[in-house]
């Protein structure tokens, strides 16, 4: 069995998954739609838009929406980036006009504590119940419990079914 590990490892790694860092040779310059020729700026622009919600179609991010308002807001974001505004400034600008609704990541505030911590509180409750239960079951004496009615019934049922055939 142990001999197998190197083999398995090899199998797992063999696919020549091109690494993300694959060198990209310089090509003819094309203009990004953002207008930012600096790739870092371009990436920042898209990352920002991805987490903002379009108000017209409401199911698309500002990055993907083709609605007129989305285009205007993209222009606004671009202009503000050019003016050297930080992401925080830009988000604050949008929230002041459209409310928290534009944020796909709900901010942490009084009304969202339950949202953000609820699942983990749920998990905690689950763990507490689980620990109590396991301890109760583990404290009981060893050995197979006497078959309860259920198991007996299942056994009988199976026997009934199979009985005539044997």
């Amino acid at each position: 069995m142990r001999r197998l590990y190197p083999l398995l490892l090899l199998l797992l790694l063999m696919p020549a998954v091109p690494a993300v860092r694959a060198a990209s040779p310089a090509a003819a310059p094309t203009v990004p739609t953002s207008g930012f020729t600096n790739p870092r700026e371009d990436a920042r622009y898209h990352a920002l838009l991805k987490n903002l919600r379009c108000l017209v179609c409401q199911n698309e991010s500002l990055q993907d929406s083709q609605a007129g308002l989305a285009k205007d807001l993209r222009r606004e974001v671009r202009d503000q980036m050019r003016q050297g505004k930080s992401n925080r400034d830009i988000v604050r600008y949008l929230v002041a006009r459209y409310g928290d609704f534009v944020l796909y990541r709900p901010p942490l505030m009084h009304s969202t504590y339950l949202l953000w911590f609820g699942p983990f509180i749920g998990l905690l409750i689950g763990i507490v119940v689980l620990v109590a239960l396991v301890r109760k079951r583990a404290r009981a004496p060893d050995g197979e419990p006497p078959p309860d009615g259920a198991r007996k019934r299942l056994v009988e049922l199976l026997r009934d079914r199979e009985g005539p055939k044997t």
Partner: peptide, 13 residues
């Protein structure tokens, strides 16, 4: 025409 003022007023439709 550019819709900028409307954005400042939070207009979305």
């Amino acid at each position: 025409q550019a819709g900028r003022v409307a954005i400042n007023w939070g207009v979305y439709g």
